[in-house]
Structure formats: C-alpha cells, structure tokens
Nucleic acid binder design. Structure first.
Lengths: 192, 192
DNA sequence: AAAAACTATTGATCTATATCAACAAAATTC
DNA sequence: GAATTTTGTTGATATAGATCAATAGTTTTT
C-alpha cells in the first residue's frame, strides 16, 4: 500500500525494519479523482503529502482572479502549502489533481517524529530543502531576466518528462506568461 | 570576537560550554571594506557566512550585463551561493560589501559537523530553510502578479530597517524593476 | 579642492507581452 | 451522441515598464 513511498525513502536513507514499521504506521493513503482538491484556499494545511501516483498542481489565485501555478508534483514528488504548514495560517494555495492520483499523507507531528527518530532523515530533508531553495532562486532570476521564450525553454529542459501530461496554458501559468504568448512562441519555434 | 554569532545561536538553540568552544574553534573572522568582494563569480563557494557587522549584497549578472540583486544580508543574516555550495560548481553570484563588514566564515565540512553534534541545530537549520523557502515562493508570486509599485511597497514593508542603508537603484534591482521606474513610483507616491 | 564616480530625476520613445475577441478542434460530461 | 467544457490558435489593440538620453546633486577618491 505504501510501497512506492518506502522505496523512495530507502533510495535516500537506510531504514531498519522498525523504521519501516514506524513510517507505515503514520502514513495515510488518500485517493483523488481528477479535478479533486487536496487542499483549498482558506483551509489550514498540516500534512506532508507524497504523490505516489498521478499528478497534482499547486496554484494560487491573485487579486484579479488569475491563477498562478506554483508547482506540478508528479509521482515521487511532494506537495503542500509550506506557509500554512509552518505558520498555521489559512492556505493561500489550492492543490488539485490533474490526473487520478494517490497521495500519502503524514501529519505534521508524525513527520517531525520521523525526522528525529530515523538517523539521517533530518539531514536528508534539509538537503532536499536546500535543493528546492536553489530551484526557486533560479526561478526568481528567470522572472527578472529571461524572455518569455527563454522561460519556456527552461521549463521543457527542466521537466521534459511531464510536459505531455500538462495542458499548455498551465505551463504558461507556471512560467509566468499568458497562454496566447506561449502559443505564439511555440508556433514561431516550429517554423524555424 | 565571535560574540555576535554565539549570541545569535544561543537565541535559537541551547548551547553547552563545550558546544560554544566547538563553534568558536571552527569560526574564522573576515573583515571586508566597503565594495570588497566576499565571493566573485567563477569561484567555488564552500562556506557558511554569517554577517556579524555591516551589510552585504548577493547579486548576479545576466547575459546582457545587467546586475540582479538576489539578497541583502545585514547583521545577523547569512550570505552565500547555495548552488555553488551544494554542487561545487563555480559561483554565478557575487557577494560584495555595501558597508565595512565583519563576516564569520565556517567551512562546509565544519558546519555539517556542528549540525550533527549540537542537539537541535539540524532541526533549527531545517526550519530556517523552510522559512526561506516561503519567502522565495512569495517573491516568485509577486514577480508574476504584482505591479512594480506593489513590489516596491512589499519590499519596504518586509525590510523597513535597511531601506535607508541601500541606494534606491539597488532596491530596484532587488525587486526587479528599472531604476527609472522606481524613481517615478516614489515620486507619484509622495504626490498623493 | 578638483576630478571622478555614483546616484537620482525627468522626459521622450520603444517594445515585449498582456488583453480582448472570435473561432475551432478536442475532450469530457450528461 | 448531443451538449458542454476545455484547450489551443490567430489577429487586433493596448499598456506597463524598459530603454535611451540629458541633467544635476552628492559622495568618494586622489
């Protein structure tokens, strides 16, 4: 039931039988149909969510009602609203399944116990955050200095394996470009 | 000599006398004159740098030769190139002192030892990264949905204490707006 | 204290990209 | 399988903000 997640963990850190039992004891499986929400704006988020199957998007709606996708999470990635998780505030993000999905939920307190109890997990988690930091940093830099076309090219370079599972206008939203502009970019690119 | 840093640490985690001795044994003080570089593009960064006095900026130069400031680090903040640190690649960032500064350097290996050796430090460091993540996330969202004026207002709200130590065109660079536009924004704001 | 470098302002012009709008193909739902 | 929704394209137009350029005050350097 939680095999995907256990395999993921074992590829990152060493687990004893007891560790595995402990992890499994705090996991909860949540199945989502396409278009179903894992989190809606306004609710408080206190889970760590591992996508074991499917694909999920995390997005936010701005003052003008426009959606801005922050992240796509396919299998073996995480999803969540880190701000709400950290500060207990109502979420500004929505998380919605783009495909029928299976999500493993671990409650905040349980997850923190795992980090302390399993040797190396705290360090691995810190490392994961460091790498995320670098990715976000680069996205900020792209936002300030790349053209729309460059941003799109960077996206397909960074996520080649999921592009055909995501509608084009959502890629536009992720990279911060209007859907029309992205359509024109792709059109020009094929002409060359 | 490292008092500022020890005080900072003690405000976050509990330190024994031995812990303090261990920390001090791996600290190195580096004094910077205004305009002096702590890191230059192309060099590899393998420190954790705590600003104990002064102010430092971390910036990157894009393909067109334009500077983009990623971060200002005043007293009691950190500075560094996390990408270079993590992957050992030549830095894309420059770190330059905006004022005469004192920086405490801890080499990568030493720092990792501290995280393991001092109870709670690993967890505190993870928490620090989580909060940074949230900040960067918000900057990405602003980049995609705020006007130039809103971005500037957000900056003065977030960093009210350092605005008068930073030239206006550098604030413009940080928020991702041209210096002329920022000048006009401020002008309009005062008219109201 | 003169020269040089840095900083901020203001005006004129340009441009990348957004917005508005209409249409059609594809996918999904009933 | 008809109706509805989603998705992508293309054209016309608008606009926020960039760029270019000139000026001047301020700070730093020599």
């Amino acid at each position: 039931m939680f095999d995907n997640f256990i395999n993921y963990l074992q590829s990152k850190i060493t687990l004893t039988r007891e560790d595995i039992a402990m992890v499994e004891s705090v996991c909860r499986l949540k199945k989502l149909r396409r278009r179903q929400y894992l989190l809606q704006e306004g609710d408080v988020w206190h889970y760590n969510a591992f996508v074991s199957k499917g694909l999920v998007r995390t997005y936010r709606v701005d003052d003008k009602g426009v959606e801005h996708i922050f992240q796509f999470s396919p299998e073996n990635w995480w999803a969540g609203d880190r701000h709400s998780y950290l500060y207990g505030d109502p979420a500004k993000f929505n998380i919605e399944a783009l495909e029928d999905s299976e999500i493993i939920l671990i409650a905040k307190g349980d997850f923190e116990n795992l980090l302390e109890a399993i040797p190396g997990y705290n360090t691995f988690q810190r490392n994961l955050l460091e790498r995320s930091f670098v990715v976000l940093q680069h996205r900020i830099h792209m936002g300030n200095s790349y053209t729309a076309e460059e941003k799109y090219n960077e996206f397909i370079k960074a996520y080649p394996n999921i592009i055909n599972r995501i509608p084009q206008h959502m890629i536009a939203s992720f990279v911060g470009v209007s859907p029309e502009t992205l359509s024109r970019i792709r059109n020009n690119a094929t002409k060359k």
